[in-house]
Design a protein around this nucleic acid. Structure first.
Lengths: 218, 218
DNA sequence: CGAAACTTTCAACAAGCGTTGAAATTTAGA
DNA sequence: TCTAAATTTCAACGCTTGTTGAAAGTTTCG
């Protein structure tokens, strides 16, 4: 039945699991660490979610729908405002990235952990193929379709490689490794998503135009 | 003492550890899996390398020096050929990426596993800060210095963010998740490093010029 | 209140973990 | 060939893992 004060513990398990999985990966976290972090008995995770893998999937799926619709809304919005000629490359990439920043602005630190988890999964040769497709392929295909319209001379192969570059840059940003902080001597901060996207959008847009622009030889 | 026929087993442990760590991460691999894969007793890994973490470090360090000098040689070579005006952005990025491809062409499949391991470590919020700096910071600083010379109007902050984008695109490529294969319906193949770099070089070079070119406002 | 449903804890399991000391085997050098 | 050193295996340890069945506690609702 719908329970009023029973949600917190279930939710706390998801929250702490999200944070630990993002930091240490699936195998680097034990159910006992999660239980201790949530202030809960070990068996409770099994009661709510089943096997460890089921908990992992539950964490992954919890915010996926909300994130997907936020990004899709952003795409629809910029398509609307651009009328029939369609949005520019910059506008499309903006719609692809900015919602990730809005998620951060809710003040819920869980979103940051969740995005780091996505980065972990997306970069993993084991988890990537198993988990990313089901929840994100449809969204990505829509964005690529929009980019194809904005770059009518592009070959499909070039378009996908360019998206791959975008996806990589984004993934490392979401991972929040702090590496850029150290390298730059503090001039750049991994946690500053806004600065990251402010640089990523013109960077990636220029790349798309260079590779997929009006110069289709061969 | 220098042993002729004792190296194989020690080396086989490193080889299989490299492959498994790259696929499943540090915590996703047990010493018993490694031993079984190498056809060797569990205790032998401890004898040669000490703790599990020491083995992980040994795998990480084995090819680092060779890789670093190959990339540094490539940078020196393009600096030489470009005389006093210095190499172009494209030439520098080419020197940064192509040696990774040469490593693949040796025919040793271990190199591919090694590069996937680098991708795992670089993208990990836990391992990245602990392991990447020591072996790769010096190399990266040299490349950024070369880029700074090729882009004299660039602000340092912009330069580092651009490098971050390059590093991300490269990392996802090295991770070999096969995601681009599926998305593109087979038009792109993760294993085709040459194609990946052929697209990444002009893409990234255009991004650098867009963000770090002659338009430094505020 | 009282019973049913849901939540949480307790206690324990079999299996697998990294690590180690000692024995067995192989190799190297006089 | 004989001996000492290096390599490899054997056997076991103490501990932690994911999972589970039953008990205890809490909430819901007639």
């Amino acid at each position: 039945m719908s329970n009023s004060r029973s949600q917190p513990k279930r939710e706390r398990i998801l929250d702490i699991a999200e944070e630990l999985f993002a930091l240490h990966g699936y195998d680097g976290v034990t159910l006992r660490q999660i239980a201790k972090g949530a202030g809960v008995d070990v068996a409770l995770a099994s009661y709510h979610f089943g096997k460890k893998l089921d908990l992992f999937n539950a964490v992954f799926e919890r915010r996926a729908e909300l994130l997907n619709s936020a990004r899709l809304d952003a795409l629809r919005a910029c398509q609307q405002s651009a009328a029939s000629r369609g949005p520019s490359v910059e506008q499309i990439i903006e719609a692809f990235l900015r919602p990730l920043e809005l998620a951060q602005e809710t003040g819920d630190p869980g979103w940051q952990h969740y995005l780091a988890l996505i980065a972990y999964i997306n970069n993993s040769p084991y988890w990537g193929p198993r988990m990313m497709s089901k929840l994100f392929d449809e969204l990505v295909s829509e964005f690529i379709a929009a980019l194809r319209k904005a770059l009518p001379d592009a070959r499909d192969e070039d378009l996908y490689w360019c998206y791959h570059n975008l996806s990589g840059a984004l993934t490392l940003t979401l991972a929040q490794t702090g590496r850029i902080d150290k390298l730059s001597g503090g001039k750049c901060r991994s946690a500053d998503f806004e600065a990251a996207y402010n640089h990523m959008i013109p960077f990636v847009a220029a790349g798309f135009r260079q590779v997929c622009g009006k110069s289709a030889q061969k």
